[in-house]
Structures are given as structure tokens and as C-alpha cells.
Design a binder for these strands. Structure first.
Lengths: 187, 187
DNA sequence: TTTTTACAATTGAATGTTCATTCGGTTTGC
DNA sequence: GCAAACCGAATGAACATTCAATTGTAAAAA
């Protein structure tokens, strides 16, 4: 692992554990074994480092979950497997997932980066909803924007409470939740 | 307004605007016209002040939205009006709402206070879901916990994106969203 | 009524700490 | 021998918190 990666890796973990304000550059240096000066060789500032962390993680998640999901003949199966991919990702990377959720609204992270990510996300999700729409499965008279927002709010919120330990999720519960979300958007 | 209230009031606004780390006790003192020493007369520490803000706002919201909602004969109407109460509250207090959402997961806020609030919330929400259950309206074989979590995730997520300006919500869209959530939980 | 007393409210300068960032220098790889 | 990678002590600003002193206040004592 390069020094740059070591810094990024250590910083995410520390920030999740103690919050941004309790994670000083000095501590990141000590914990990662990379000198303060070197951190500044790779990152302009602390804000820059944090924004970079956010950007990297979001892109990694998008690539794994949305951009690599394979369309299927049965659209309900496709819908289901997409959500399961997200759940799997969150299970395997709970720390990273929590970081993203917690800093989604943070004013520290550059607005341009947030927008870039948001657009990329919307583009990926639209693909599946366009297919559902063309098959006439979606509720009528409701805008695609609204349906996507409902979808995104439910899914992210539920995965978050799963990761936070607020609910248990075995295979059975996952199937039930996906069914609920599906019933919300289809006729 | 007492000095104590002045401090609380100024602090919420500043924290929403600039985040916790950019809101120093010195600045709160200057903006509120209350000396630093006086702030420490009323609050043990900065953490204590922030936790107090969180607690006050949550309780205010719970009282307005849940604990004062009046049961109705038609359960769909009751369900609908409860969600509308929350939307109305968020519209009227967007700054406070944003503060609560942003700091819901923050490690700064005392875990005991979070739990106290969480229990109070769950208790209020359970009332309506028990009624729906007794009427046999809910989907079968799904635990009440899961249904409530689905409800809470969808509603809070959607109101949040409304307040953040990510979606528009006229009366028509509100009705549609409530219908979607309802279809998710009922047979 | 006036004076005394006690205590709560209020003040802001002073303290000690922590922190992000810089910079002059050293090491490494090519 | 050159440039990029790397180092960590030094700097100065910002900050949370403390505290000795002052003011307000309300009740008890005179």
C-alpha cells in the first residue's frame, strides 16, 4: 500500500471512530506512520483530504453497486438483485458506508464533488426505472423523479438502520423489505 | 428571552450555517451578546450545549408531530394526516429539522439522550401501527419492527430531500408519496 | 424603611492546549 | 546529479475552559 493510500485508509477509520474534529492531521500521521509533511505532499489541506476520501468511497460504491449490475429478463429480479448488491456492499464495508452517510450533508465536503457524484448516481439508477416504465409496471401519473426519490430514501434509510444495528436483516427480512419498496412504486 | 435561551437560539443557527467545528464558544458569545463565562454558567461544556440543543429540538418536534396527533375513524386519513403534520413541521422549521437530521448520527451527542428520544418516538409511532394491525390492514408475516423501520426511513428520507430542495412537493406530490408508502405496508 | 447579608447571575481577560500548515532539510529512485 | 518523495520540529492562530472580580436581587436583620 502506498503512503497516499495508507493515509486515506487510516483517516477514514479514525474519522468514523472519533469524528472529523477529533481527528487531527498529527494523529493521522502518527497512526498511519506517514509524516505530516508527506500528507501535505499528497493533499492540499485537511478539507481536501476529507473531500478526497468522500469522493473515492462514493465512486467505489457506485461502480460496484450500480454500474456493474447486470440487467435481467425478469425486472423484479433485476430490481431485487440491485438492492441486494447495495446491502452486500454495506455489509462488507460498514465503516465506509457509515462515513458516506454521515458526511452526505456535511458542509465540509465540496459542493461540486457532491454534485458530480449525485449526477453519476442518478444516471445509473434511471436505467432500471426507465425499463420498469417502458414495461408499464410503474404507478401512473407519478413523475420519475419522485419515484426515484422514494426508492432512494427507502433503500438508503433501511440499509443505514441495518448497519447501525437498529434492525436485524436475514434473507427473509431482506425479501420482505424489497417487496414493500416494490409495492410502493408499482401498480 | 433569557440569556440561556438566547445562547441556545443563536447556537442552533450558527451550527446549521457553519457546522459545529466552525462555531466556537467565543463566536456564540459574541453573536448572542452573552459573555463566555455566562454560557459556562448554564452549560457544563460545548458538548453539553450541543446535546441540549438536540434534545430540546427533538422533544419539540415529537410533541408537535406525534404526541398531539388526533386519531381518526378512517385509518388511511389518520396515517395521512400524521405524515402531513411532520411535513408541515419541517416546512415551518427547516433549520431545526436540518440540525436534527444532520446530527442524528453524530458521535458528539450523548448516546443516552439519543436512546431516550428514540424510545419516546417509537412509542408514539407504535400507537398508529397497532391500530392498523388490529384492523388487519398490514401485510402479513412481517414484523411490526420492520414495518415501522420502513415507514420511518421512507418518511424521514423524503422529507429531508424536500427540505434540501432535491424534490418539489405540492399537495399532489405529497398525496402520491403517502400513497406509495401506504402501499408498501398494506396488503 | 433602611441596611446588611448571602448568593445567583454575569463578565471577559488569562491560560494552556491543540491544531493545521509551513519549511528547510534528508533520503530515495532513476 | 536531479527531482520527487519524505521527514518532523517550529510557528502562529484558534479554541475550550477557568476564575477572580463585579453586579443584580431578594430576603433577613436592624
Amino acid at each position: 500500500m502506498s503512503k497516499r493510500e495508507k493515509v486515506l485508509d487510516t483517516a477514514v477509520k479514525m474519522i468514523i471512530e472519533n469524528g472529523i474534529q477529533n481527528t487531527s492531521m498529527g494523529k493521522i500521521s502518527k497512526n498511519s506512520g506517514v509524516a505530516v509533511g508527506t500528507i501535505y505532499h499528497y493533499f492540499e489541506s485537511k478539507e481536501d483530504l476529507i473531500t478526497e476520501i468522500y469522493r473515492n468511497l462514493k465512486i467505489k460504491m457506485l461502480e460496484r453497486v450500480i454500474e456493474n449490475s447486470q440487467p435481467m429478463d425478469d425486472l423484479y429480479d433485476y430490481f431485487k438483485s440491485s438492492i441486494k448488491l447495495l446491502i452486500k456492499y454495506a455489509e462488507e464495508n460498514p465503516i465506509e458506508f457509515e462515513f458516506m452517510e454521515r458526511h452526505h450533508m456535511s458542509p465540509v465536503i465540496d459542493a461540486k464533488v457532491k454534485e458530480e457524484i449525485e449526477n453519476r448516481y442518478k444516471k445509473g439508477v434511471k436505467k432500471i426505472f426507465k425499463m420498469l416504465d417502458e414495461e408499464g409496471l410503474l404507478k401512473e401519473d407519478i413523475s420519475l423523479e419522485l419515484i426515484i426519490q422514494y426508492f432512494q430514501s427507502s433503500v438508503m434509510g433501511l440499509v443505514r438502520s441495518y448497519i447501525n444495528g437498529e434492525i436485524k436483516m436475514t434473507e427473509k427480512e431482506i425479501e420482505q423489505l424489497i417487496q414493500m419498496i416494490w409495492d410502493g412504486i408499482t401498480k
